[in-house]
Design a protein around this nucleic acid. Structure first.
Length: 526
RNA sequence: GGGCCUGUAGCUUAGUCAGGUAGAGCGACGGGCUUUUAACCCGUCGGCCGCGGGUUCGAAUCCCGUCAGGCCCGCCA
């Protein structure tokens, strides 16, 4: 069974109605790792719906979280916003300067991410945490937290092993300058928290308004109750022993609600895509990823991996493998009869089908409709040797991949493929590089017999029609005339033209190149 | 120091929760397609399931120990 389905089964025991949630702090650019946070929860949500439970998926934006430090992409003028909730800070302009016209810091980073989410079919109910505070929904939790301050302190100290300062208080009011740093609480009289900030200014915060917030560990535990969250997968940073998940569970109960069951997912790591990018520290964002990869396959990368396995995301060979695996599973699903399968094979099939189901953009879409019918590798190859899309389609018709016109999904896929090939993330090994002259490696592998063939072929190439079929016939004729095995003839051409011992149809490559260029390369042999 | 996760074929892994003859893909190799392939089809090779012990009629699976790798415990998913 797929992990999301399994989780849904477990949740069913808890009740008919589920709320799956993710929470992310919009402190900077979103990246591919956040996709796992989102999709882990969203797939559980879908799995719940699929077994007939009621479920909703909410995305809580930690807009009330303070700016921690001045990040590299921010100008030093952000210094004054440290400790200020991200919802109340202006967004940076292209120089990293605060610019009030751009809206809030939180929304500035959030919005493009939401666009990406929509493209992978994730339409969450957005909850801006600062609004929840402003609506007074945190008030009762804040009140309990303050009244049970010592119990909470004990939980955090015992479980996390961390010692809290003597003047620790389970509520951080916003000071006179907007920052929560260095604000000391002096008194609590429901619903008012009295304080004195680091500038010596005294003030009052109303717990019914967004005039302060609960510290992270309590905030998280409180929101589980406020939104009735039943499932919230968390990153391993929160999940490790003594982390915020472990303290959150008893705190949530103390605040009067039943917490979700702990679920921890592993990180996505970005594997270097070759020496160039890894040293430059290129990270890949969801927007960028979606320009290369079809949305179903991006979802599949998350769906196929168990939550506790880390994922090496890279835009090189593994992307080929995952994409082709997706295609293969789609076309395979009718292979074996169920009764002929062993228990293990059945489990594997069930899990795979679950992954495919959850990889669709819209819940309920038939996975088969996302089948392009051509492997990534093959398309990558055609895209490189055929500059015109129509020639790609012709080639696919000829090879029997498609019957007549390419489906929309295939057209889009080719477009993305061209982006990938022309961008920095395409793996070197998969690139076809046309040689300018005979390489040393090639000269070591070409025999005198093969040189005779090339000489013969050159003379034909000077006069023949420049068409793929004609060219191919010339190659075969040439080989026969000098009594060379066809296979060795092709081998010679591979070595000479792309410096490898194998490759795509060589006639296709040659026909895409200029006659004169080919002749020139040939002449470097003699 | 505390803890989590992982270790199965050259590579990526399924199977571990509910113990019952070790599955798959990629790669490699071979063959076919009377036109080559990084297309397509067929086949072959390849695993002391990290190591040692225990429980069991039976262990990749449960228990104990051990080694190796990755990661988290300073609000970065």
């Amino acid at each position: 069974m797929h992990w999301a389905d399994h989780t849904a089964q477990t949740l069913k025991e808890r009740g008919e109605s589920q709320v799956c949630a993710s929470g992310i702090t919009p402190s900077g650019e979103f990246h591919i790792g956040h996709i796992r946070e989102i999709l882990s929860a969203e797939m559980i949500h879908r799995a719940c719906l699929d077994i007939g439970l009621k479920s909703k998926y909410i995305f809580i934006v930690d807009s009330m979280d303070p700016l921690r430090r001045v990040y590299d992409f921010l100008s030093p003028s952000y210094q004054k916003y440290i400790g200020v909730p991200l919802a109340f800070i202006p967004a940076p302009d292209s120089n990293g300067e605060p610019d009030k016209k751009r809206g809030s810091y939180a929304e500035y980073f959030l919005n493009p991410f939401l666009t990406s989410l929509e493209r992978i079919g994730v339409i969450p109910e957005i909850v801006m945490n600062h609004e929840v505070y402003a609506q007074g929904k945190f008030a009762s939790k804040i009140d309990i937290a303050i009244n049970k301050k010592e119990e909470i302190r004990e939980i955090i100290e015992n479980i996390s092993g961390r010692e809290l300062p003597v003047d620790w208080f389970p509520y951080s009011p916003i000071g006179s300058d907007g920052s929560m740093d260095g604000v000391k609480v002096t008194k609590y009289e429901k619903p008012y928290v009295y304080w004195i900030d680091k500038n010596g200014v005294e003030g009052i915060s109303d717990i019914n308004k967004a005039e302060g917030k609960l510290p992270w560990r309590i905030d998280w535990a409180a929101r589980w109750g406020i939104h009735n969250i039943t499932s919230e997968p968390a990153g391993k940073d929160h999940g490790s022993a003594g982390g915020s998940y472990d303290t959150g569970i008893p705190i949530c109960r103390l605040l009067g609600s039943e917490p979700p069951k702990k679920m921890v997912y592993e990180w996505i790591q970005i594997k270097g895509m070759g020496p160039m990018s890894s040293s430059k520290g290129v990270t890949i964002g969801p927007v960028e990823a979606l320009e290369l990869v079809p949305p179903q396959i991006l979802r599949y990368i998350i769906a196929r991996s168990k939550v506790n396995r880390h994922i090496d995301f890279d835009t090189g060979d593994t992307l080929f493998e995952m994409a082709d695996e997706y295609e293969r599973l789609l076309s395979e699903s009718i292979n074996v009869r169920d009764e002929e399968m062993t228990r293990r094979q059945r489990i594997a099939k069930e899990t795979n089908n679950g992954a495919l189901r959850l990889s669709q953009i819209k819940r309920g879409d038939n996975p088969k409709d996302s089948w392009a019918g051509v492997s990534f590798r093959h398309l990558a190859l055609l895209a490189q040797i055929k500059n015109d899309d129509d020639d790609v389609w012709k080639s696919l018709q000829k090879s029997g991949h498609i019957e007549d016109k390419p489906a929309k999904i295939l057209q889009v896929r080719l477009e993305r493929m061209r982006n990938w090939i022309n961008g920095p993330h395409f793996p070197e090994d998969s690139k076809i590089k046309i040689q300018k002259e005979l390489s040393t490696l090639a000269s070591e592998n070409i025999t005198s017999h093969q040189i005779k063939f090339i000489y013969n072929l050159k003379n034909k190439f000077i006069i023949c029609e420049w068409d793929e079929n004609v060219i191919n016939n010339q190659i075969r004729d040439s080989a026969k005339e000098v009594d060379l095995k066809i296979k060795d003839a092709y081998l010679a051409l591979y070595w000479l033209l792309i410096n490898k011992n194998k490759g795509p149809k060589i006639a296709a490559i040659i026909s895409e190149l200029q006659r004169n260029d080919i002749i020139k390369i040939f002449e470097t042999v003699f």
